[in-house]
Amino acid sequence: MKNKKFALAALVGLFGMTGTASAALPELGLSQKVPGDIYAGAQYQIISDDVVDLGSATLVAGYKHQLAPKIAVGPELKLGFGIGDDQVGSNQQVELDLSLNTMMSAGVRGEYQFNEKFKAFTSLTYANFDLEATLKDKVSGQSASASDDQWEFGYGVGLSYEVVNNLDIVTSYETYASGDIDLLSIGLSYKL
Rank of each mutant, 00 (worst) to 15 (best):
A120F: 09
F15S: 04
G187H: 10
A23P: 00
L131C: 05
T125W: 00
S22Q: 11
F114S: 06
D86L: 10
S143W: 03
Y161H: 14
P35C: 02
A9D: 11
G141R: 07
Q150V: 12
Q66M: 13
T20S: 14
G187R: 09
S145C: 04
D50T: 13
A61D: 06
M103D: 00
N115P: 09
N128C: 01
K119C: 07
A106S: 07
Y155F: 15
A57S: 10
M1I: 08
A133T: 12
K136H: 10
G110T: 10
A23E: 12
Q93E: 14
S178I: 04
V51I: 11
G80T: 03
S185D: 05
G84W: 02
V34D: 11
V170R: 10
V34T: 13
T20H: 02
T20W: 01
K33F: 09
G62K: 01
V108Y: 06
K70G: 00
S56I: 02
A23S: 13
G107N: 04
L8E: 12
G41S: 08
G29D: 10
D137K: 08
I169T: 05
A21S: 11
A133W: 02
L96P: 01
Q142R: 09
Q92P: 00
Q93C: 02
G80R: 00
F81N: 09
S99G: 14
G107R: 02
K2I: 06
Q113G: 13
T102M: 05
T134H: 05
K5A: 13
V157E: 06
E111L: 13
S185Y: 03
D180H: 03
T171S: 15
I71H: 08
Q43M: 12
N128Q: 14
K4L: 14
G89T: 08
L188T: 04
S105R: 00
G80W: 00
L183D: 12
Y190H: 09
V163P: 02
N115T: 12
Y112M: 11
F153Q: 13
N91V: 08
G82K: 01
Q45G: 04
G89A: 10
E152R: 10
D86W: 05
I169E: 05
A146K: 14
K191Y: 11
A120I: 13
K78S: 04
Y173G: 07
K33W: 03
L54M: 04
I186K: 02
D137N: 15
L131K: 01
L100I: 12
V139N: 12
D50C: 02
S90N: 08
V170T: 14
A133L: 10
L135H: 06
G154H: 06
L100K: 01
D168V: 03
G156H: 11
G110D: 05
A24V: 08
S90V: 12
N101D: 15
Y176M: 08
T134D: 02
L67K: 01
Y161S: 15
S140C: 08
S22T: 15
N101A: 04
A146I: 05
S56L: 00
K78N: 15
Q142W: 07
F15Y: 11
N3R: 14
A72E: 12
